[in-house]
Design a protein around this nucleic acid. Structure first.
Length: 108
DNA sequence: ACCATGACGTTTC
DNA sequence: CGAAACGCCATGG
């Protein structure tokens, strides 16, 4: 089932280092489906069903925008968690995104 | 089976 | 350079 795909998404996402961020597309590409970024987003939307803890706040879209912040308990929680890890966020956007970007294909 | 939706991404205006 | 149009693919009605 595609549930396996979700599991793999959660497994990769749970390995994102603190203070680093990645994108939905990067995860999808790492899993072999470069065009399934939207599905990764869907997986994140359902991540509360995951059996492991998923740091969904470290996953943003390709330009470093906190596109999913409104899906957290409190919309401000995502930014708060990032800033607690040392990631600066301004206007819902990760600063120095390219520098903090964590690519599982290269670093895992 | 068809259509609409979405935490995306690339291409085209 | 910003907005819109597509393409993509799992899910739900």
């Amino acid at each position: 089932m595609s549930q396996d795909f979700f599991e793999r998404v959660y497994e990769v996402a749970s390995k994102i280092p603190e203070g680093r961020v990645t994108t939905y597309g990067a995860i999808a590409e790492f899993l072999g489906s470069r065009r399934s970024a939207r599905v990764v987003g869907w997986a994140m939307n359902q991540c509360h069903n995951a059996r492991v803890n998923v740091p969904a706040h470290r996953v943003v879209n390709r330009i470093g925008l906190l596109s999913g912040k409104s899906h957290f308990e409190h919309p401000e929680l995502m930014q708060k968690l990032l800033e607690e890890e040392g990631v600066q966020v301004v206007e819902n956007q990760v600063q120095d995104f390219e520098q903090l970007f964590w690519n599982p294909s290269n670093e895992l």
